[in-house]
Computed example of a mutant assay.
Amino acid sequence: MTTAVTARDRAKAERTDAILVAAAELFAARGYSGVSLEDIGAAVGVSGPAVYRHFAGKQALLGALLVGVSERLIDGGSAVASVAGSSLARMRGLVSFHVEFALGNAEVIRVQDRDLAHLTEESRADVRRLQRAYIELWIDSLAALVPDDRDALRMRVQACFGLINSTPHSTSTALRRHIDTSRLLNAMALAALQADG
């Protein structure tokens, strides 16, 4: 038997999502240690204690943010890989997916890079497990295009992530508007992945 979703359930889910978005923006701007639950609550129009209705505390909120984004990456990447018709189409699809993710989630990438150490051991292990699965998905796809061993393919994939993930917060918004950032990043990433050794 399924339970109908009520308006109250929807409102709570929307507030939870808003808290996660606000937390990502604030953590990215000030770092995990520079943000309080009161700051996050104020950003979404509730008191700090009201945030506890959604998350057990600031560390749990960080865990939900970073584990959640890792789940989105593996789910989205798997969906892209499953529908591609050829090896090259699969790789292009993965690159395009990751570029769009990086351009749309610069704050979360910054938080991941800087504040991973603040996670609980369990959440950190979950993030690492999901990241490894995402990397393996890319390696499996790249192996059909580049005749290299898995260690070399892993290096290519991780270097590609570095290229893509650095761009949203290493260039200005004005510059990203001036050039077709997505198209350029796609071309650069594909070239880097398949570069002659």
Rank of each mutant, 00 (worst) to 15 (best):
M1V: 10
M1S: 14
A4Q: 13
A4G: 11
A4N: 12
A11Q: 11
A11C: 04
R15N: 08
L20N: 07
L20K: 09
V35T: 15
V35H: 03
S36C: 10
E38P: 08
D39F: 02
I40Y: 04
A42E: 10
A43Y: 03
V44H: 05
S47R: 15
G48S: 08
A50P: 03
Y52D: 05
H54N: 12
A56Y: 01
A56S: 15
A60R: 13
A60E: 03
G63E: 03
L65C: 07
L66N: 09
V69T: 15
E71V: 09
L73S: 07
D75C: 06
D75Y: 04
D75P: 07
G76S: 09
A79H: 11
A84C: 06
G85K: 10
S86H: 08
R92K: 11
G93K: 11
S96H: 03
S96L: 03
H98D: 13
E100R: 14
A106R: 09
Q112S: 13
D113S: 11
D115C: 12
D115W: 00
S123P: 01
R128W: 01
R128C: 05
R129W: 00
R129N: 06
E136Y: 03
W138D: 08
I139N: 06
S141M: 05
A143S: 15
V146M: 06
R150Y: 00
R150H: 05
A152F: 02
R154P: 00
G162E: 04
H169Q: 10
H169W: 03
T171R: 06
T171F: 01
L175K: 09
R183L: 08
A187Q: 14
M188I: 12
A189M: 04
A189I: 07
L190D: 02
A191R: 14
Q194E: 15
D196P: 02
G197V: 13
